[in-house]
């Protein structure tokens, strides 16, 4: 073995070590910096952030919204409260969230379909539906659903007849929307749990309409 080879081997070993060092990617390093400064200044607590991440990774998702919809189908009084003041009504489940802000429920009928977007950024009722899907945040959806809602809905598999009007609701930081889909036929006598299992995330955003009875 020549000394030149040995030098190269050392150099390669160093490069290898560097590549495998546990230096996080650049944005992760910036987040780490931000978090540590905010914690030191008493503006956030590490435990609060950890609990938030755990809740949104494990517990908080569209099953919450589905419970609300199923209850509205079964309980006319609850439905009246939901349509009157949705932010207040979901406190009955403990599903309220500051970032969900004020909430408005909009109901699909035989002659009206509702679909929700945030044209500004990605406002979404997180505490009720969990994290928004990637397409909801994509500029293609944000721009197109306002311009050509029927065409976008068609791509999602929702074909609307000419007799069904489409209303597009643009979310803001202060006001977000929950679509209440129509209860499918053939579910008479079903429990809230059974009904909730039929309610898809997309149906509560409005990119799904006719729920399938399984």
């Amino acid at each position: 073995m020549t000394s030149g080879t040995s030098f190269d081997r050392d150099k390669l070993a160093k490069i290898h070590d560097h590549l495998h060092s546990h230096l996080p990617p650049e944005p992760a390093l910036r987040v780490k910096a931000l978090e540590s400064l905010l914690v030191e200044r008493g503006l956030v607590a590490t435990e609060t952030l950890d609990a938030w991440v755990e809740a949104y990774s494990e517990d908080i998702g569209p099953k919450r919204g589905a419970q609300v919809v199923a209850r509205a189908w079964l309980d006319a009084d609850f439905k009246a409260r939901l349509m009157e003041d949705a932010a207040q009504a979901i406190t009955e489940f403990g599903f309220e969230g500051k970032a969900t802000g004020d909430l408005k429920a909009v109901e699909n009928t035989d002659d009206q379909h509702n679909v929700v977007v945030c044209t500004l950024c990605s406002c979404y009722p997180f505490s009720l539906l969990g994290l928004s899907p990637a397409w909801y945040k994509a500029s293609a959806y944000r721009a197109r659903v306002v311009r050509e809602p029927r065409k976008v809905l068609e791509e999602f598999g929702v074909s609307l007849g000419d007799d069904v009007a489409v209303r597009v609701w643009d979310s803001t930081a202060e006001l977000r929307y929950l679509v209440v889909p129509q209860r499918p036929a053939g579910t008479e006598g079903w429990s809230q749990e059974q009904l909730a299992a039929l309610v898809t995330r997309n149906s509560m955003i409005g990119t799904d309409r006719d729920l399938e009875v399984k």
């Binding site: 996080p24 978090e35 609060t48 952030l49 991440v53 949104y56 990774s57 500051k98 970032a99 994290l131």
Partner: peptide, 19 residues
């Protein structure tokens, strides 16, 4: 739910500061 841990942390920090 989150592709990377830092994605979750960014939203957690933003949501906590808004709250």
């Amino acid at each position: 739910k989150f592709g990377e841990a830092w994605h979750a942390q960014v939203l957690a920090i933003a949501d906590t500061l808004v709250t």
